[in-house]
């Protein structure tokens, strides 16, 4: 199998990510810390509301749609403005109204954006380490790369975010009414067009993410801090190999989703009682999130390895030396 074959790149990406395990733990701590900050007020409110109420006991066992309806009727603002939440749940909240959300969900949105920005900065550290021949696992070297490459990486991430939001608007929002139109005669037309809409968005988002990943890789490899130059290099690289770049994106997307899917399908849920079970479940959940973060980093690792390999292959062969 060639060194640039997809499975090889996938494996090299995961290996690269594993070598930066300390940095991955930093990213996990960041994720967990933010999640804790966002959910702490809600968790505290839930304790206030439920701890004295024996009638809340069924909630410990899992979802209870009727009891949840009673909870939200008694506390309409528990998650934020009920009308907007309702629209969000129905998938009909316009993107423009997302900033007007209130309550814990607004906190989650803000934390999400912050997490996205911090992840963009950390991506600079990862590509710096992946481009380096030595000290790949060094945390101090990682942070010095964050300082050096973080900002351009963040800018590339913001460009990617803008692109993905644009693709979302063009492929999902704009044709929404047309693809759900009651004028369509058959249900399969409606489903087909809606899936087409989703497919087009995922394709565009995947392409944008691939360009961002390769641009970040170019940033690390070139040692330049010019994001536009990196973007040019990344775009050129992806345009030269669009199918493989997308397949790499799909491979790491699936890798990121697999642990979560397995956890949701197989892991027991905490229904109270043994706190050791709770501790074990929390630990298991952190492993799942860590694997998701690792697969995101591994994508950058694979992108760096792929780009470096391509560059080395394109270098002219050394002149023949005759003795």
């Amino acid at each position: 199998m060639k060194g640039e074959a997809l499975p090889v790149l996938w494996a090299r990406g995961l290996l690269s990510a594993a070598r930066t395990w300390k940095a991955l733990l930093v990213a996990l701590a960041l994720n967990a810390g933010l999640a804790l900050v966002v959910t702490a007020p809600l968790a505290s409110r839930l304790h206030d509301l439920l701890d004295d109420r024996p009638t809340a006991a069924p909630l410990a066992k899992g979802r209870d749609l009727v009891l949840e309806a009673h909870l939200f009727r008694a506390e309409p603002g528990l998650l934020g403005d009920p009308a907007r939440l309702d629209a969000l749940g129905r998938g009909s909240l316009p993107l423009a109204e997302l900033p007007s959300l209130s309550g814990p969900l607004a906190g989650l949105l803000a934390a999400g954006l912050l997490h996205s920005a911090l992840s963009g900065l950390l991506a600079g550290g990862f590509v710096g380490r992946f481009a380096s021949e030595r000290d790949r696992g060094s945390l101090s070297a990682f942070f010095s790369d964050v300082v050096r490459l973080g900002l351009p990486s963040l800018l590339l991430g913001l460009l990617g975010l803008g692109g993905i939001l644009g693709a979302f608007y063009v492929f999902v929002e704009l044709p929404r009414a047309a693809t759900l139109s009651p004028d369509l005669r058959w249900d399969w037309e409606r489903t087909g067009l809606s899936l087409l809409r989703l497919g087009a968005f995922l394709l565009a988002a995947g392409a944008i993410r691939a360009v961002v990943a390769q641009s970040r890789a170019a940033l690390g490899l070139s040692r330049s801090v010019n994001p536009l130059a990196a973007l040019g290099a990344g775009l050129g690289f992806v345009l030269g190999r669009p199918v493989k770049a997308l397949l790499l994106e799909v491979a790491f997307g699936a890798t990121a989703l697999l642990p979560l899917a397995l956890w949701l399908l197989l892991a027991p849920s905490f229904r109270g009682g043994d706190l050791r079970l709770l501790a074990a479940l929390v630990a298991g959940q952190q492993v799942v999130v860590l694997l998701r973060i690792a697969s995101r980093a591994a994508h950058l690792g694979a992108a760096s390895a792929w780009m470096r390999g391509a560059r080395e292959a394109s270098r002219p062969a050394p002149a023949k030396i005759e003795s």
Partner: peptide, 26 residues
């Protein structure tokens, strides 16, 4: 009895962690 709130807090934290990761993925 903190069981119900604890169980939900536990679920919500995991949900939040994955939503944050989703944001990072964009």
């Amino acid at each position: 009895d903190p069981t119900a709130a604890r169980a939900w807090g536990h679920r919500l934290r995991f949900l939040a962690q994955n939503v944050l990761e989703l944001f990072a993925l964009v």
